[in-house]
Design a protein around this nucleic acid. Structure first.
Lengths: 226, 226
DNA sequence: CGGCAAATTGAGGTAGATCAATGTCGGTGG
DNA sequence: CCACCGACATTGATCTACCTCAATTTGCCG
């Protein structure tokens, strides 16, 4: 398990655009993986619930939301995927997708055949290790999501969320989504989200950067976390 | 992927007490898997958050809760494991456990070395398939948990939960837990859970079977679901 | 300029939290 | 055997955070 540390698809290698397990698209194709690069516009649907699951999608840029429709019809965003994450990993173990994947910004992905990837994982230890890592990331994120954004008072949820959405490159910036989406992520109504955000602005913890309220500058990260 | 259908550790084979991938404990030992059967009393802790993750636990009887402590100290039950489920599967991809596993009833488990199991998965296609299935079950359960029990009004959450906890053998019976645990599962306070349950009793949908309020008989499953 | 989409803001209502008292069961010791 | 105690569930009364409904604002685009 030790070499699992060395593989990290979320940190693209310099000059080597790795898709999975430190392998490039060309190397994967040489190993019989059917693979294509695709782009989705904001709002585009990668796959829907119950659809035949034959591909998994490695995200290289943009952001994707996983939406689950509850038994009573409500829609809940159960996870958010960014570069390095995998959408539709259940294709490795199931015939159908469990939820709907929708691009929340424009997104670039590598689409790979699940069956050929599965077959490769039996031959390549590196691929197997990385797939296990992907499963693990998905599961950990799912549990985090429940514990951090779906418990406690509304203001802490929103603060946690603002912190989670910080840019990797510039941690003083954070970009959010439509208030409705944010509500579906945290189990709140859109008005509540809006009120909490303006409260944070008035308290001087964040500063709005654009007119739509999508980008904020983080002024006091310490008080946000506390 | 087609043979994934044939393997189902949650349905124990007649006379063959399979642990994983249709294999018995003896067969797994013959394949170099370190494996032991263990029992835990109610309230016992299998492992805790951050603890070194070297084993995975296949549950054969009883029930185990996965507890995550949020950043603000609150404790949240993020999933419930029953016979056939796996606790600590993250040992296959991580050095430490992500959450705490506590037996909620007396529980029997097979404890297996994660590293030897990982090595075996590279040799045996059946084992690999079954492990992927286990990952998938865990992930799907996590998403279900969020969508079904942690969204919507309190009464629907409780009704869903009562239905989910039905006995496999006798679907007219359901057994619940302490009101505090139930609250931690559904994001409600214990008083609220109690009130919702008595409301269901008064409405004639369920009937209490014991003094502690752990077992109920389901009278009207249709109205419970609707 | 006018119309649309999204965010903000306000006022009022309600579901669920909180605080607190009571009830019930099971165990323990006199 | 009975009195007492602790753990847990229930029930009640109030309070409040969030929802709901509605009006207003802002920026965008034809």
């Amino acid at each position: 398990m030790s070499n699992a540390r060395k593989l990290n698809a979320s940190e693209p290698q310099a000059q080597r655009h790795c898709v999975l397990a430190n392998l490039t698209a060309e190397e994967l194709r040489a190993m019989q993986i059917q693979l294509e690069e695709r782009c989705w516009p904001a709002g585009g649907t990668l796959y829907t619930t119950g659809e035949w699951a034959d591909s998994i999608y490695v995200i290289t840029s943009g952001m994707v939301k996983l939406v689950r429709t509850c038994s009573d019809g409500r829609q809940r965003i159960v996870r958010l995927l960014r570069a390095g994450d995998v959408a539709g990993i259940e294709a490795l173990a199931s015939d159908t997708y469990d939820n709907e994947a929708v691009a929340i910004t424009g997104a670039r992905v590598y689409r790979m055949s699940a069956s050929s990837l599965y077959a490769l994982s039996a031959r390549s230890n590196d691929v197997l290790t990385d797939l296990m890592r992907k499963w693990h990331m998905a599961l950990r994120d799912a549990d985090d999501w429940l514990a951090e954004f779906n418990a406690g008072p509304a203001d802490t949820r929103v603060r946690q969320f603002v912190l989670r959405m910080r840019h990797a490159t510039d941690p003083t910036l954070t970009t959010l989504f439509s208030r409705e989406d944010m509500g579906a992520m945290m189990g709140l109504k859109l008005e509540t989200v809006s009120r909490q955000l303006t409260a944070l602005v008035r308290a001087g913890l964040i500063q709005r950067q654009d007119s739509l309220g999508r980008t904020y500058r983080i002024v006091d990260a310490v008080r946000l976390g506390g």
